[in-house]
């Protein structure tokens, strides 16, 4: 295989992993409430900003930044659930708890919180890309055979793998994971056997949002693009990956994120570069028309 193609595949996987990082938290949160959390892109953005502020203030070791940003993300998830989701979950009857109306209401409320946060970030930090201390960037080149990778590629791969393993552990080896899976399958069934569903939902938002914030940190330092609108485009791709994967299927979403990344990276070989951004939307259309339950989806009624 020629070096250009190999490099293209490497770049594509790297881009896809960035989308996958976002999609993991996004899909986890979707799973419990069947509601799309459109503020995830702002959690992602704030995660990057939090990392930058921490690095500028203390320049701690990278692992310390990771843990601090995860904590910030968990805190954001907690607040987001309180502000945008819980107030709308008041209605206590079976029909409305997971109803379309409630899903649409939380979709709007999370979108609104997201816009507000983004604009506030712009007021505070300005709309331009933030200067990043050169030592903090994750872009030291590393040659692997004919392919040039960077430290960021390894960090992002490591982070995605760690997230998936941690999630696997959380969901299948812990009691909180048992509750999350139960809620995701039947919230009312879980409620009636004594599970404090509100608390499990908060935990899910905290875990999902800490993953989202970490995604922002990694991608921001990798590409050096930290600005208030940084979450929009990649979160949209992650959303498409989640839809393609079957909405409630985290490994499926990760695979589809890689597929989108690879396609975007290799497409310039066969089509004008300015069309590349359309690829994800073509995937979206094809999925919605031919695979309404997602490529790896098990159930059609989830949409």
């Amino acid at each position: 295989m020629d070096a250009v193609l190999l490099q293209g595949i490497a770049n594509g996987l790297s881009l896809g992993l960035c989308y996958a990082l976002i999609a993991i938290g996004f899909t986890l949160i979707f799973g419990v409430l069947n509601a799309v959390n459109f503020a995830h892109s702002e959690v992602y953005m704030l995660g990057a900003f939090a990392g930058l502020v921490i690095i500028q203030a203390f320049a701690p070791p990278f692992m310390a930044v990771v843990f601090l940003v995860a904590a910030v993300g968990a805190f954001l998830g907690f607040g987001l659930e309180r502000i945008a989701f819980r107030p709308l979950r008041r209605a206590r009857d079976e029909a409305s708890l997971k109803s379309r109306a409630l899903r649409e209401a939380t979709l709007m409320s999370s979108l609104a919180v997201g816009i507000l946060v983004r604009e506030l970030a712009e007021l505070r930090f300005g709309g331009d890309m933030q200067p990043i201390p050169s030592g903090a960037m994750l872009n030291t080149p590393i040659a692997v055979g004919p392919v040039i990778l960077t430290t960021g590629d390894f960090y992002i791969f490591g982070m995605a793998a760690a997230m998936l393993l941690l999630l696997q552990f959380l969901l299948y080896r812990t009691k909180i994971g048992l509750s999350i899976r139960a809620l995701s399958d039947d919230l009312i069934g879980a409620l009636y056997v004594g599970i404090n569903t509100d608390r499990v939902i908060v935990w899910t938002f905290m875990i999902g949002s800490s993953f989202g914030a970490l995604a922002g940190l990694m991608v921001g330092l990798y590409y050096g693009t930290i600005f208030p609108y940084m979450g929009f485009a990649p979160t949209l791709k992650a959303f498409i990956a989640m839809l393609m994967g079957g909405l409630n299927n985290i490994p499926g979403a990760v695979l589809c994120a890689l597929l989108i990344g690879l396609s975007e990276s290799l497409a310039p070989e066969i089509m004008p570069t300015r069309w590349v951004d359309l690829i994800a939307y073509v995937f979206l259309l094809v999925t919605l028309i031919f695979f309404p339950a997602g490529i790896f989806g098990r159930k059609a009624e989830r949409v």
């Binding site: 509750s179 899976r181 399958d185 056997v193």
Partner: peptide, 17 residues
């Protein structure tokens, strides 16, 4: 209202939990 994607054991252990 069983949890269809969970094992029989896990279903019941949610009750115990």
């Amino acid at each position: 209202r069983v949890f269809p994607n969970m094992t029989v054991f896990d279903n019941v252990s949610v009750g115990a939990l």
